[in-house]
Design a protein around this nucleic acid. Sequence first.
DNA 1: ATAAAGTTTCAATATTTTTTGAAAGTTTAA
DNA 2: TTAAACTTTCAAAAAATATTGAAACTTTAT
Lengths: 167, 167
Amino acid sequence: MEFQEAKNKFVQTWGALGSQWGINKTMAQIHALLMVSNEPVSMEDIMEELQISRGNASMNLRALMDWGIVYKEFKAGERREFFTAEKDLDELAVKISRERSKREIKPALKVLKEVSSIKADASAEEKHFVEQTGKLYDFVLKADNVLDKMTEYKDNWLAQILIKFMK
Amino acid sequence: MEFQEAKNKFVQTWGALGSQWGINKTMAQIHALLMVSNEPVSMEDIMEELQISRGNASMNLRALMDWGIVYKEFKAGERREFFTAEKDLDELAVKISRERSKREIKPALKVLKEVSSIKADASAEEKHFVEQTGKLYDFVLKADNVLDKMTEYKDNWLAQILIKFMK
DNA sequence: ATAAAGTTTCAATATTTTTTGAAAGTTTAA
DNA sequence: TTAAACTTTCAAAAAATATTGAAACTTTAT
């Protein structure tokens, strides 16, 4: 396989993966492109390589920066802005976990707490509802805490879990 | 808050959460509805409660059964089919992990392996590409193994990780 | 102060994904 | 075997989401 072909395949695959995890396709593709570039890339180049419009590139770069996984770089003597991706994979995992926790899990927890605290009447139906949503609240809270804890181990959480878990 | 209101809120929230995790909204809503029902629910009732069409209900129930998180039940003397959700949350997490691993991670790993094995020429660009995709392959493989291992612990993986990790 | 080089915004448009509903298919009871 | 009760399928329609591109905006050099 040629380098260009491999690069393309990687960008496409990473893009598809991203879109299944709540990050949109172009966003994931830009990230992929930056991650395998050995030096900062300009917006022009991103537009060119992915065949996307300026507006699209701009919006998705902004979103990636909001997630904290892409950075702006300034090159001496250059007017244009360049971009680089977070390349440290542990760091990347931590940032993505934190962001998803903040955006998705925390709000869901709030609702779970609310709905599991209604005063159930004597019916089996309502009792079951309160019990089940209560369990769900506990479960999601625990899972979210695991994420939080993992981010503290940062550099090596995966390896550490593995050591403790495997065989 | 009234029971009906709480139930509705829960179904909506779970639906929104699901749609951010690669499961579609209706699918997640049906699952939510079944999870908080103390007894099996017929397709009619699902259509009625979620205000969706027969076709939609049928397809999404099928998908949920393919994921292994919703079951058909037959009631004695009843012609119709009824449905229940997996209510054990550890079991639910295991099934979802396995399914996502199979559908998303495994195929991505295959591509990562491929593209990271190209013969890089001497350029920094190609060297960086091979190195970075190689790291990504190792990382994703490790993460996938963690999931696999966790599913073996099944009933209590979350609690176990917590015990080992917290403080 | 002006123009050039670049970036952002957002309404309109295109694409993708989901939903509908009616026809085809199945199962069961009589 | 037939018809009633129910389920599945899938092409067409609707809804949701992503993308474009041109105008507005910002920054820098002269």
